[in-house]
Design a protein around this nucleic acid. Structure first.
Lengths: 333, 333
DNA sequence: TTGAAAGCGATACCAA
DNA sequence: TTGGTATCGCTTTCAA
């Protein structure tokens, strides 16, 4: 059988309460007794049972992250790999752990959310890719469940949220292409319903003299098809893609048409994923500092869970940096 | 306050035990009573508290996966993205959830393992990239903790494990290069201490007339440097890389030297990650069916946790498939 | 400073 | 078929 606090108490010849106090580092415990208990804990390799502790303290020390993707499509998206990696990294060494789930359709989302928070499996949630209108958010608010959003929540100032200034990021990326002498810049956007798409489209339109926007699903495959059509019908000399994966789709379509990058076609992506270095000459991309966003979100989430009086505003905007590589710089001979 | 089973019992005017039975779908509950209780549960949006349930049933329904990587290096490795994606997918829709952690150094590994299983945070573990000599395994065995290995465990037949036949996979990949007319094939291997490296090296040596092996760390960067040296000093006409990321490093080094792929240099990787499609012409890669391995591992782990009498052997070998793409096929004009 | 005892919210055994 | 009650392992008052 497993060794419990009861056992430690018996062996140490103290009460269970005292053992608990020693465990909690309670100052009021007599030094000698403390040492004795600690010694017994040590020899018996005692570790408290988090299940019991969770029940009593009403806290699991688990943070939930639910990915909104089709099952089987996650691996194709370096953004999520990045996001998950950053969350795991941010949690490493802390008493918090990550509970990771995936849910594609809305029905499954609901059941996961129920399972995760109504059953109190996790203490709080990080939400990504959610829209302000998102039904999930209403449920979470109703239940007073701790959560932090990574994404646009401008219309709900009461939410804790962090986002990029997507208008600005698109402006910066588009301006860069203009400066490099590209004059016919198209925007290969994501689904039109997403705030992030609309924000970036606005930033793009604000800079570009003549706008051409194509909406498509995320992923290299659909981006490739959309880019092919764009190249054939609109014949842009540069394409700004919603993310690096879509930029890879653009590059594939360009290759099929024997278009040289960056000479015939300039390409810029978002997220600055490791993909960028795998493109010949490198893929120019906007670094959104996802790591910093995740760190902010987790710190904030833990504060909300612990009911720490939260310092500063409820929302933050993260800066970005354009990482200029070969795909958008025409040879300066 | 949260609504508890007690509340449901009071409102339904039955005992708490009956509510529990209804929840468990116990057949012996009178139909009328069952309906009444279910109705009350519904109106009050009741969901059982998993913390209490975990304590009583001594089961958290969490599966642990500890990634063995430097913090901050995960995103660069599509293998892990793939692995995590497959685990999350395999768990989706089941009552099991994933608890994901990362630990780089051995010290941190130990503390994570302690935190995870001695405290009973998770019910079982999936182990990857572990060596048979791995200290972790001894601890897990001593504690009779349920776990399943993804990797080579030939020397410990008592372990539940699934692996590829790495000897064969390397043979297949190398033979393919030979058949394509490459005669001076080098193997860009991982760390020499790993079983997977040694197994593949043996497979490679078994096929190749003249062997040349370079060991290096995982990751595109170190692969690039190692490949550069290999190209300069050994001048192979083909390189078999340990994984796709390392193959990308090889391709980068080849580009710097103006070597055309596949004409001047054939390249083959492992894992068949999405990266393969991002290479011009495509990167030939060995598909290790990681998804199937993960599914096997999780099914087995759940069986072990549930103490189901395990059918079949304790170890399995997964097949593989060479995905031939442009990087290893010289134009047949 | 220490111990006894009351929970936390479920499950499961034993009677009725 | 249903209810009473012990129990899971820990935290946390309340007394002593």
């Amino acid at each position: 059988m497993r060794v419990t606090q009861q056992d430690i108490a018996r062996i140490s010849e103290v009460s269970q309460a005292t053992v608990s106090r020693v465990l909690a580092g309670d100052e009021r415990v007599d030094g000698q007794i403390r040492d004795r208990v600690l010694a017994v804990m040590n020899t018996h390799n005692y570790r408290p049972d988090v299940r019991a502790r969770s029940l009593r303290q009403r806290k699991t020390h688990l943070i939930g992250l639910v990915i909104k993707r089709e099952v089987g499509s996650l691996q194709d998206d370096p953004f999520f790999a990045m996001l998950i990696a950053e969350v795991v990294d941010a949690l490493a060494g802390s008493p918090w752990h990550l509970c990771l789930d995936i849910a594609a359709d809305t029905a499954r989302q609901h059941s996961i959310y129920d399972e995760l928070l109504r059953t109190r499996r996790v203490d709080g949630l990080i939400l990504v890719e959610s829209e302000a209108s998102d039904e999930r958010i209403l449920r979470l608010q109703q239940d007073h469940f701790p959560f932090v959003l990574i994404g646009n929540a401008a219309e709900m100032p009461e939410l804790h949220a962090i986002d990029n200034d997507n208008f600005r990021t698109a402006e910066i990326a588009t301006s860069h292409l203009l400066e490099q002498g590209y004059g016919r810049i198209a925007f290969l956007a994501g689904p039109q319903t997403l705030t992030v798409t609309r924000d970036r489209e606005a930033g793009y339109r604000n800079v570009v003299p003549e706008a051409m926007v194509a909406y498509t699903e995320f992923g290299a495959h659909s981006a490739r098809e959309a880019a092919a059509q764009l190249l054939d019908e609109y014949q842009p000399d540069a394409i700004l893609a919603m993310d690096d994966t879509m930029a890879m789709g653009v590059i594939q379509a360009a290759r099929e048409r024997k278009l040289a990058i960056p000479q015939d076609l300039g390409v810029v992506g978002f997220n600055d994923t490791p993909l960028c270095d795998h493109v010949e000459g490198g893929l120019t991309s906007v670094n959104l500092q996802i790591g910093n966003m995740v760190q902010w979100a987790i710190r904030r989430l833990v504060d909300v869970i612990d009911d720490t009086s939260v310092l500063g505003g409820r929302q933050a905007i993260m800066g970005c940096e354009l990482m200029v590589r070969g795909s958008s710089v025409r040879g300066k001979l």
